[in-house]
C-alpha cells in the first residue's frame, strides 16, 4: 500500500507544481474556474466585506467571463481579463447599491491575493487592522474593537462604554471616518 500512496503524493506534488507554474494556456474552462475561483472570491470579499455580496459578484464575473475566453489565451491573459471583468462588476455593484464607488480593484491586484488559504488572524489584512486600531484615539479604538472584534451589539457597546445608544452610534461613525482617513493615508489600502 505504501507505494501507491507515494505515487499519489508524487502526482499531487506534480499537480501542485503545475498549478504554481501554470502552462501557457488553460486546458478547459474548468481549469480556469478551479484555478481562480477562490482567489476571486477572496478579492471580492475584501471589497464588500460580506459573504452574500461576495458570492454574487464572484458568480457574476465567472458567468460573464468564461464564455468569452479564447481557449488559446494564456494564463496571464485570462487573469487580466477576469480582473477587468471583476473591476466592472464591482463598480456596477456600488453604482447600483450605494451610488458611491466605495472600493475599487487596482490593476495587478489579483496576483497579490495569496494562493493558499489565508489564515484570517495572521493574514496581512488582519495585521493592517491591528495597526489601524492602534493609530486611533482610545475611545475610537475601543468602540471598533467591541463592535468588530468582539461582535458586541450597539446596545452592549453603549452599556460597556457607559454612553447612550445614540451616542454609541455617533461615536462608531466618527471612529470609522477617522479609520478611513488613516487607511487613505497609507496609500489607498483596500480601495
Amino acid at each position: 500500500m505504501a507505494i501507491p500512496r507515494r505515487k499519489a503524493e508524487a502526482a499531487e506534488r506534480t499537480e501542485r507544481a503545475l498549478r504554481a507554474v501554470p502552462a501557457d494556456a488553460y486546458a478547459s474552462w474548468e481549469h480556469i474556474y478551479n484555478d481562480n475561483v477562490a482567489r476571486l472570491y477572496r478579492l471580492m470579499f475584501a471589497k464588500v466585506g460580506n459573504r452574500a455580496d461576495a458570492e454574487d459578484l464572484t458568480a457574476e464575473v465567472f458567468l460573464a467571463a468564461v464564455p468569452r475566453v479564447r481557449q488559446a489565451a494564456s494564463v496571464g491573459e485570462v487573469r487580466a481579463y477576469l480582473l477587468a471583468v471583476a473591476r466592472t462588476v464591482l463598480a456596477d455593484h456600488w453604482r447600483r447599491t450605494l451610488g458611491h464607488q466605495i472600493t475599487t480593484i487596482d490593476p495587478g491586484e489579483f496576483e497579490q491575493i495569496p494562493e493558499p488559504p489565508a489564515v484570517p488572524s495572521t493574514g496581512a489584512a488582519a495585521g493592517r487592522v491591528a495597526r489601524l486600531l492602534e493609530a486611533l484615539p482610545e475611545r475610537y479604538r475601543r468602540i471598533l474593537q467591541l463592535r468588530f472584534l468582539e461582535n458586541a451589539t450597539i446596545r452592549e457597546t453603549a452599556t460597556s462604554m457607559q454612553i447612550t445608544i445614540a451616542n454609541a452610534k455617533v461615536l462608531q461613525f466618527r471612529a470609522l471616518r477617522q479609520a478611513a482617513a488613516i487607511l487613505d493615508g497609507e496609500g489607498g489600502v483596500d480601495r
Partner: peptide, 22 residues
C-alpha cells in the same frame, strides 16, 4: 458616510471568518 462604510468594510473583511469561499 461612504468614507466610513469603506473603513467598516476594510475592518470587517480583515477580521471575518468568511474570507474563504464555502
Amino acid at each position: 458616510e461612504a468614507e466610513a462604510v469603506r473603513a467598516a468594510i476594510a475592518i470587517r473583511a480583515a477580521t471575518s471568518d468568511e474570507q474563504e469561499p464555502r
